[in-house]
Amino acid sequence: MNEKARLSLKSKLLAELPSLRAFALSLAGSSDGADDLVQDTLMKAWANASSFAEGTNMRAWLFTIMRNTFFSKYRKSRREVQDVDGEAAARLVAMPDQLAHLDLADFRARLERLPADQREALILIGASGFSYEEAAEICGCAVGTIKSRVNRARRRLMDLLALSSIDDFAADPELTDSVAAVRFGE
């Protein structure tokens, strides 16, 4: 848009301010709401000036923008919850995600500290869901050896994590699921 067209649009917008303000008051019901509605309308009109066809009714175009803006805000406000005192927000408390990631990273680091044969047995039985017989076949050892490795791995992992039972993870569902996946403490 060239400078002459911008000045022309600006003067046309300014000329419509009294009509826009009156219409906004009838929609919003308060002067503050009307002022906000007029401002939003002018901002949208200015941003979308290229969609205005010269020779058409500027007032009708602006009123349509205002009406659509008002009803969009109205529909949005119906979905919003008024929470002046913060009571509703206080009920929506969630544990911060970053702690779960740190706990999971700590768990993985401790899991890596297990001897390779114990870690392998624990992952096959706990995380992968193989039976003791299947795990023994995969590892090429006796079923009793797999059971022993899993038991030692579970005990060692609990010591490394300073846990007395899986219930120590109860406050953190993401980590509890990961730990439960290796089924230690059964």
Rank of each mutant, 00 (worst) to 15 (best):
R149K: 10
A47H: 14
L37R: 05
V84T: 14
D159N: 04
Q118R: 09
A88N: 10
D167C: 03
D168P: 00
A109F: 04
A49G: 07
A181V: 06
L37Y: 12
D167F: 05
I166P: 00
T56D: 04
L27D: 10
D85Q: 12
W61K: 02
L13Q: 03
C139N: 02
G140P: 00
A28M: 09
P18M: 14
D40Y: 15
L160Y: 15
N57I: 02
I146F: 03
S178H: 15
M58A: 05
D103Q: 09
Q118C: 02
G144A: 08
F23I: 05
P115T: 05
K76L: 13
W61T: 04
A24N: 00
D167Q: 07
F52T: 09
P96F: 07
A60D: 03
K4L: 15
S178P: 01
G126H: 06
I138T: 02
S77K: 11
S164E: 14
V182F: 14
K12I: 14
R119E: 02
L7S: 15
A47E: 11
C141T: 11
R108M: 09
V150T: 01
L13D: 09
D177Q: 12
E120T: 06
V179R: 11
A170G: 02
A153K: 01
E87W: 15
R156F: 12
E54F: 02
A49W: 12
R108A: 06
S11Q: 12
D168Q: 05
C139H: 00
T176A: 13
R108C: 02
D32G: 07
A60S: 08
P115Y: 05
A47Q: 13
Y132A: 05
Q82Y: 07
T69K: 00
S19T: 09
F52M: 04
G140Q: 02
A5C: 15
F130D: 03
L161E: 10
L25E: 11
D159G: 06
Q98D: 12
S8M: 15
R108N: 07
L104W: 11
E134W: 06
A28Q: 10
S178R: 14
L25N: 09
D172W: 08
E3R: 14
G140V: 06
S50I: 09
I138P: 00
Q118P: 01
F63C: 00
A53R: 12
V179G: 10
A53G: 05
A5S: 14
R183I: 06
T69E: 03
L163T: 01
A109E: 10
L92A: 13
A109M: 02
R183D: 13
A22P: 00
M58H: 08
L102K: 11
A153P: 02
W61D: 01
L92K: 15
F107Y: 07
G29V: 09
F107E: 04
S26T: 09
L62G: 00
T41W: 08
R183A: 13
L27K: 11
D168T: 01
D36P: 01
Q98M: 09
V182T: 11
G144I: 03
S11K: 15
R6I: 15
V81H: 10
K10Y: 15
R67E: 05
A170Y: 04
A94F: 15
A28N: 06
F107K: 03
E137H: 07
D83S: 12
G185H: 08
F130R: 05
L163Q: 03
V182D: 10
R183V: 06
E186R: 11
